[in-house]
Design a binder for these strands. Sequence first.
DNA 1: AAGTTGCGCAACCGCGATGCA
DNA 2: ATGCATCGCGGTTGCGCAACT
Length: 275
Amino acid sequence: MGRQPCCDKLGVKKGPWTAEEDKKLINFILTNGHCCWRAVPKLAGLRRCGKSCRLRWTNYLRPDLKRGLLTEAEEQLVIDLHARLGNRWSKIASRLPGRTDNEIKNHWNTHIKKKLLKMGIDPVTHEPLHKDHDDHDHPDHDQSPSNKNMLGSTASTPQDAKNTSNIPNNSSSEEINSSSSPEAVAENSSASGDESALLLDSLCNDDDMSTLMNYNLWVDSNELWNSSRGDQLPQKVVNSDNMEILPSFEDNCSWLLDCQDFGIQDFGLDFRSRR
DNA sequence: AAGTTGCGCAACCGCGATGCA
DNA sequence: ATGCATCGCGGTTGCGCAACT
């Protein structure tokens, strides 16, 4: 069957989003949700295709996003997960709350890839480059914690994961783990004794932990935002048991509309200012 | 100061997966 | 079973900025 274009190319705007467009999209999603992305632009009064709206929302406007550079721990987690999952960025991103697949993919291509190459690690296979000469070429690389972790983290290469199709796209963490040999798992636990490895295992084996971490990271980012613009932030909500819980979607998002009036740079979080 | 180059990021594109009539 | 619409993913592109010459 012939594939229809995702949207009518005529009259559809492309390129960077303006603050006005962002505002419209946020407004619409806050009040209506996104029942059908294809309908969103029309209903929201945007001259964009639904795909573009979805991308803008998931990669930039979503209120639970954690902006800024990846931390060391997050970077290590990405490396470990990449060793297990390959280029399945959305799967990797799902294990890093507040991070998007696009963000992780970009970070991988621009930072981590180079870092690994510098260390003499093939970023695709996570194996040492030029195995035979590796000790001479990179005498110190295997002493670094990240490399130790990386090499110990998996027995199967990303290609294995991707090419053999043993792991379905929606494979669970258990499936991923079971695809590794018992030896590899044992090696993993013994060779990578650091915290990120433990965290990785926890994340891969326990969705509750992931949820918990999500909350913790949300609190962290909340505090980060608090330090710059406390009055604009979603506040923690206390439930009837006097427990802090995540705010509702609306609570969480309402401040975002205000943010649009200032522009992201006003919060000191403009990514471009990091450089 | 002006021009060039390289880098990092946001956004786009194409395709496979999925759901529904 | 088939066709169509939509979603979601991964790869790629293009723009803006900073560093360099």
